[in-house]
Amino acid sequence: MTGLFDHVMLRVDDLETSVDWYQTHLGYEEKDRHEGDGFTIVYLGPEGMHDDGAMLELTSNHGETTDEVGDAWGHIAVRVPEGELEAHYQQLMDEGVEDYRDPESCGGRYAFVKDPDGHEVEIVQRDYGALWSIDHTMMRVEDADEALGFWTRKFEYVEPRSRWESDSFANYFMGPEDAPQEAMWLELTYNYDGRSYTMGDAWGHLCVRVDDLQEDWDQLMLREAADYRSPEECDDLYAFTTDQDGHEIELIERDPDAESLFPF
Rank of each mutant, 00 (worst) to 15 (best):
235 D>V: 13
232 E>K: 10
229 R>M: 07
215 E>D: 14
159 E>R: 11
183 A>P: 09
149 G>V: 04
144 A>R: 15
159 E>D: 12
206 L>Q: 08
179 A>Q: 04
161 R>F: 12
239 A>R: 03
166 S>R: 08
164 W>M: 11
231 P>F: 01
231 P>D: 00
199 M>C: 00
157 Y>D: 00
244 Q>I: 04
212 D>K: 14
228 Y>W: 13
244 Q>A: 04
164 W>G: 05
182 E>P: 01
161 R>W: 12
143 D>L: 10
229 R>S: 13
156 E>W: 04
198 T>R: 03
180 P>H: 13
238 Y>N: 08
184 M>W: 06
186 L>N: 05
242 T>D: 02
188 L>F: 09
201 D>Q: 08
146 E>I: 02
172 Y>N: 04
227 D>S: 11
171 N>P: 04
154 K>W: 02
239 A>K: 03
142 E>G: 13
202 A>S: 12
207 C>G: 00
142 E>R: 12
179 A>N: 07
208 V>A: 08
149 G>M: 05
158 V>Q: 02
168 S>F: 06
225 A>V: 15
210 V>A: 02
160 P>H: 13
231 P>L: 01
191 N>H: 14
172 Y>H: 10
232 E>L: 05
209 R>S: 07
199 M>N: 00
160 P>C: 09
187 E>R: 13
178 D>W: 03
152 T>W: 14
218 D>L: 04
213 L>A: 02
179 A>F: 10
172 Y>M: 04
216 D>R: 15
215 E>N: 08
182 E>T: 07
143 D>K: 06
205 H>W: 02
155 F>G: 00
240 F>I: 00
162 S>I: 12
241 T>V: 15
169 F>S: 15
175 G>E: 09
147 A>P: 05
137 T>G: 08
154 K>H: 11
146 E>K: 09
193 D>M: 00
163 R>D: 02
211 D>L: 01
154 K>L: 04
146 E>D: 04
216 D>S: 14
197 Y>H: 03
190 Y>T: 05
226 A>Y: 12
141 V>C: 10
141 V>R: 08
181 Q>P: 11
241 T>L: 03
243 D>Y: 01
196 S>L: 12
183 A>N: 05
243 D>T: 00
211 D>V: 01
223 R>H: 07
198 T>L: 09
191 N>L: 15
203 W>K: 06
175 G>T: 09
169 F>A: 13
181 Q>C: 07
237 L>F: 11
185 W>F: 01
158 V>I: 13
178 D>K: 09
174 M>Q: 08
153 R>A: 05
152 T>C: 12
174 M>P: 14
206 L>T: 02
206 L>W: 08
232 E>V: 01
192 Y>H: 12
142 E>L: 06
196 S>Y: 13
196 S>M: 03
206 L>G: 06
191 N>V: 15
151 W>C: 11
202 A>I: 05
147 A>N: 12
212 D>P: 12
208 V>K: 00
165 E>M: 09
228 Y>H: 11
222 L>P: 00
